[in-house]
Amino acid sequence: MRLATAEINLTALEHNLAQVKRFAPNSKVMAVLKANAYGHGLVTIAQHLNEADAFAVARIDEALALRAGGLTKPIVLLEGFFHQEDLPILLANNFQTIIHDEIQLKMLESVQLDAPLNCWLKINTGMHRLGIAPEQFDMFYQRLQASPNAQNKINLMTHFACADDVKNTKTVQQITLFDNLTQEVQQAHCLSNSAGIIAWPSGHGDWVRPGLMLYGVSPMANHTGKDHQLKPVMRLTTKVIAVRDVRAHEKVGYGGRWQSDKPTVLAVVALGYGDGYPRHAKEGTPVIINGHRYGIVGSVAMDMITLDIGNNEHNVQVGDEVIMWGPELPVEEIAQCADTISYELLCNITPRVSYEYQR
């Protein structure tokens, strides 16, 4: 019996990329593939994003895995490099690098390379994570232009802190600051993540970098991907492995966390936090079996979850498919039930879950 499975719909992935292009028709697309393509499978996902103009990853090992998988598109390292010895590797593999602090700039200036690198200068406009201070922009830009190890084309980037909240004026402030700093510089600009693509068209710039929305999930608070005509790419399923009667007031699971006030039937499903499902999912978090919703009861264990299926009027049986999330049950809803975000649920899928790619 095939148990925990992540079904990856490649047609939905391609649809979502096309939807990105509809949101930002005048921008090139840098598809974000970090964290194993948000849990969907790095290389296979990249191989089916043929209409993307470039890929973006967090770290060099992810970029090298893409090259090993035969991907030839430009790849941008969103965290840049961490050691001077990395720079020849970047050049040899045609990787583009973010420059976000002076340590990186000094390493780039002091190395001898056979050819210049394609660099992105990241400006901190309010995220206060990575990026140079606004008052440093002129100095960094001039030093990069003067360096023989950087191409004259110095791309410019920032990152939004609150773009998922359309009522928050922070994004407008960040766009304004970025535009004011860079208005005299004729270089490519990249500002918008998925939320910026959907909600802030004034920040689209020359490049957009969709991440979560490529996988059919909404980056916006209190929305699902369907609200933006996106299609979920992952469908996480498992199977029922036991159906059992429980008497009234019998305590179920570790710590006796749950008990029914009347006789009921439980279904036990083969999936737990060992597969990446959130241990802190609340009582009542839904799953779907044969078109009907049932709620989780008791503690999520490493390998199993229990469901209250009442009097089993719909005849749930061992071997029935259980949908944990997917097109029928948005991952955004599960994230709310677990007091977390959909990003975490997707990225937390563990290696013992089988992946099945399909169209």
Rank of each mutant, 00 (worst) to 15 (best):
A6R: 12
H15E: 12
N16S: 09
N16H: 04
L17I: 12
A18F: 11
V29E: 00
L33Q: 04
H48S: 12
E51P: 00
D53M: 03
A56N: 01
A63E: 03
A63G: 09
A65T: 14
L66N: 05
P74G: 05
P74A: 06
F82G: 07
E85A: 14
L91V: 11
T97N: 04
T97R: 02
L105V: 08
E109T: 05
N118L: 10
N124W: 07
N124S: 02
A133M: 13
Q136W: 05
F137E: 01
D138M: 08
F140P: 06
P148W: 07
H159C: 01
H159G: 06
T169A: 11
K170A: 14
V172K: 12
I175K: 00
F178H: 08
F178K: 00
C190H: 05
A195F: 09
A195E: 06
I197H: 04
G205L: 03
P219L: 05
M220R: 05
T224D: 11
K226M: 09
V233C: 01
K239L: 11
K239H: 14
A242D: 15
A242Q: 14
R247G: 07
A248Q: 02
G253L: 12
G253E: 10
Q259W: 01
A270R: 14
L271H: 07
Y277E: 03
P278L: 02
R279W: 08
I289F: 08
G291C: 07
G295F: 07
A301C: 06
G310T: 05
N315E: 14
V316E: 00
V322D: 01
I323T: 15
W325D: 01
L329D: 07
A335L: 10
I349C: 03
R352M: 10
E356D: 11
E356T: 08
Q358Y: 14
R359E: 13
